[in-house]
C-alpha cells in the first residue's frame, strides 16, 4: 500500500525528469551554431536539394512545432536517423548497449566484491595496518583519473608483461554464454573475461575506493551508536552484530550514494571505452559529438537519462525496504 504509492510517486517524478532531459537536449540542439544540413550533405550541393532535406527533417517548421514533433516521435520510440550514417538512431543505440552494460556490471561487481570486505576490515580494525592499507588504497583510488589508470594498466600488464590484451571486445558476453550453453565450449567466455578484465578494473577502481571509504566511515559511525552497545548486551554472536546490524545499517545510506554516482559510472565508461577501444555507447557518443550528429547525441543521452532514472527508482525502492522510516515520512 504505502510502498505502491511510493513507487507511483517516484515514477511520476521520473517521467518529469526524463522530460526535462529531453527538453534541455532539444534546447541545446536548437542553439547549436551551424546548419545541420551541412553535416548531412556536401556543403556544395545546390539550394534546392538543401531545401528538400530541410523539409524532410522538419527544420523549416517553427521551433515549437519541431519540439512537439520530437516529443511525439520519442513517445513512440522513434529517435530519428543519424546525420552521419543515415541509420536509425534507436538501432545505433541498442546495438551498443550490451558492451557498455557488460562493462558497467563487471566494474560494479569488481567494486562490491573488493570494497565491502575491505571496508568492513577497515571499519572494524581501526588504526591497525589493515586499516591503513585500505584507507591509503581508497585515497589513491578516488584520486586517480581512470583513463590514466587504464593506460598504466595497459603499460604494465599488456605492454610490459603481455598478460592481458590492450583492449577491444572480440566476443559479446551473451554470444559467449550462448556458445557455452549450447556447445559447452568455454573458450569464448574465457576470451571475453580476458578482454574485459582490465577495462572492468579500470572503471571499477574509483567505485571500489569510494565504497571502501564510505563503508569504513559508515561502520565507524554505526559502531558508535547506542543500539550497538545495547545489542552487545543481549549476548548475540559478534558475527550477527557486525553484519546483520552494523553492516546492514551502514549499507542503507551507501546504496543511495551509489545511485547518485551512477552518472560518474557512465562518464567513466565513456573514458574507459575510449582507452580500451571498447565498442560501447561511450565510444559512439564521442564520435557523435565530434560530428555534431545531433539525433545520435540526443538518442544516446536520452537513453542514458532514462536508465539513470529507472535505476534510481530501483535504488529508492531498495532503500525504502531496508529503511522502514522512509515510507512513513
Amino acid at each position: 500500500m504505502a510502498f505502491g504509492k511510493f513507487l507511483l510517486k517516484r515514477s511520476l517524478q521520473g517521467i518529469l525528469v526524463v522530460w526535462g532531459v529531453v527538453t534541455v537536449l532539444f534546447g541545446l540542439r536548437a542553439i547549436t551554431p551551424g546548419d545541420p544540413v551541412n553535416l548531412i550533405v556536401d556543403p556544395a550541393v545546390d539550394l534546392e536539394t538543401r531545401e528538400r532535406i530541410r523539409q524532410e527533417l522538419g527544420l523549416d517548421e517553427p521551433i515549437y512545432v519541431q519540439y512537439g514533433d520530437y516529443l511525439g516521435d520519442l513517445l513512440v520510440g522513434d529517435l530519428g536517423y543519424s546525420y552521419q550514417s543515415s541509420r536509425p538512431v534507436a538501432t545505433m543505440v541498442i546495438e551498443r548497449v550490451p558492451a557498455t552494460l557488460e562493462l558497467a556490471i563487471a566494474a560494479t561487481i569488481v567494486a562490491l566484491v573488493i570494497a565491502i570486505p575491505l571496508g568492513v576490515i577497515s571499519g572494524t580494525r581501526r588504526n591497525e595496518p589493515a586499516d591503513y592499507g585500505a584507507t591509503s588504497f581508497s585515497l589513491v583510488g578516488i584520486s586517480t583519473p581512470n583513463f590514466w589508470l587504464g593506460i598504466m594498466l595497459i603499460l604494465l600488464l599488456a605492454v610490459e608483461f603481455n598478460i592481458f590484451p590492450t583492449g577491444r571486445r572480440p566476443v559479446a558476453f551473451h554470444d559467449a554464454l550462448w556458445t557455452f550453453l549450447t556447445t559447452f565450449y568455454v573458450g569464448d567466455l574465457l576470451t571475453w573475461l580476458h578482454h574485459i578484465a582490465l577495462p572492468a578494473v579500470t572503471l571499477g577502481t574509483y567505485f571500489t575506493a569510494l565504497i571502501t571509504r564510505l563503508t569504513r566511515s559508515g561502520m565507524l559511525d554505526e559502531y558508535g551508536k547506542p543500539y550497538v552497545t545495547a545489542t552487545e548486551a543481549k549476548g548475540i554472536p559478534e558475527t550477527l552484530i557486525r553484519y546483520k546490524h552494523v553492516l546492514r545499517n551502514t549499507m542503507i545510506p551507501i546504496i543511495t550514494v551509489l545511485g547518485l554516482q551512477l552518472g560518474t559510472l557512465i562518464g567513466g565508461a565513456v573514458v574507459t571505452e575510449t582507452v580500451f577501444s571498447w565498442p560501447g555507447l561511450g565510444l559512439r557518443l564521442i564520435t557523435a559529438i565530434n560530428n555534431l550528429d545531433w539525433p545520435l547525441i540526443q538518442g544516446i543521452i536520452v537513453f542514458v537519462g532514462i536508465s539513470y532514472v529507472i535505476i534510481n527508482i530501483g535504488v529508492d525502492a531498495i532503500y525504502a525496504t531496508l529503511n522502514p522510516r522512509v515510507l512513513d515520512e
Binding site: 547518485l260 551512477l262 557512465i266 562518464g267 557518443l285
Partner: peptide, 15 residues
C-alpha cells in the same frame, strides 16, 4: 543529476 556530468560537459563543449 540525470545527466552524467562528463557526458553533458562533452555535449556542451561539442556545441
Amino acid at each position: 543529476l540525470a545527466f552524467p556530468s562528463l557526458v553533458l560537459a562533452l555535449a556542451l563543449v561539442g556545441v
